[in-house]
Simulated scan of single mutants.
Amino acid sequence: MTEAEAEKETVKAAPDLAALEQEGEIAADYVEGLLDIADIDGDIDMDVEGDRAVVSVVDIKGGDLVGPNGEVLEAIQELTRLAVHRQTGERSRLMLDIGGYRDRRRTELRELGTKIAADVKRDGEPKSLQPMTPFERKIVHDAVAAAGLRSESEGEEPRRFVVILPV
């Protein structure tokens, strides 16, 4: 690959900030509409993290928009992604958080991945975890890799799970 081709690839791989900000604005409007319909008060923050738009409902008052194991949050996120797709024609990787659930879950999963990786290192035996969403599995995979081990996802959605493997 020539230097010019490599530069072109780098430019192509860089996220389109304006498009991601537009996704965030569309998503925020959609979520705000849902909150109004449900008569739930909450403030909405928008951001771009890496290659995805992030919309967070903060200071939420009333209603459980997260649900057990984040199931309601996942459903609202998917509806929001569909709303963005309908307006932009592009598939969205938007991340929605409500009441800080994803941040708390991210911390729990990092700790879990680190703890189980230590157990696997000590025992030398692979360990399977409970089924998780793609978001959750990614966090565990990253924590396991940071601990110096390897992990794989197995099974079929929605019962896909992480297996942590010894060295």
Rank of each mutant, 00 (worst) to 15 (best):
K138Y: 09
D97V: 03
H141G: 08
Q130P: 05
G124Q: 11
E111G: 11
E152Q: 14
P126I: 06
L94Y: 08
P134C: 06
E108D: 14
R122H: 14
R106P: 00
T114C: 04
F135G: 00
S153R: 03
E111A: 14
V144I: 08
A118Y: 09
L96F: 08
S153T: 13
R150C: 00
S151G: 06
I98E: 01
A145R: 14
M132N: 01
A146W: 02
A147D: 08
A117K: 00
R91T: 15
A146Q: 13
R91Y: 15
G124Y: 10
L96T: 05
K127H: 12
R150P: 00
G99Q: 03
E90W: 06
D142P: 00
R122Q: 14
T133C: 06
A118S: 15
I139W: 01
E125L: 13
M95H: 07
H141W: 10
R91M: 13
D103Y: 05
P126R: 12
L129H: 05
M95K: 12
I139D: 00
R137S: 08
M132T: 02
K127Y: 11
D103I: 08
Y101C: 05
R104Q: 14
S153A: 12
R150W: 05
H141F: 09
K115R: 15
G113C: 11
A117Y: 01
D97A: 09
M95N: 02
R102H: 04
G148A: 09
E136T: 09
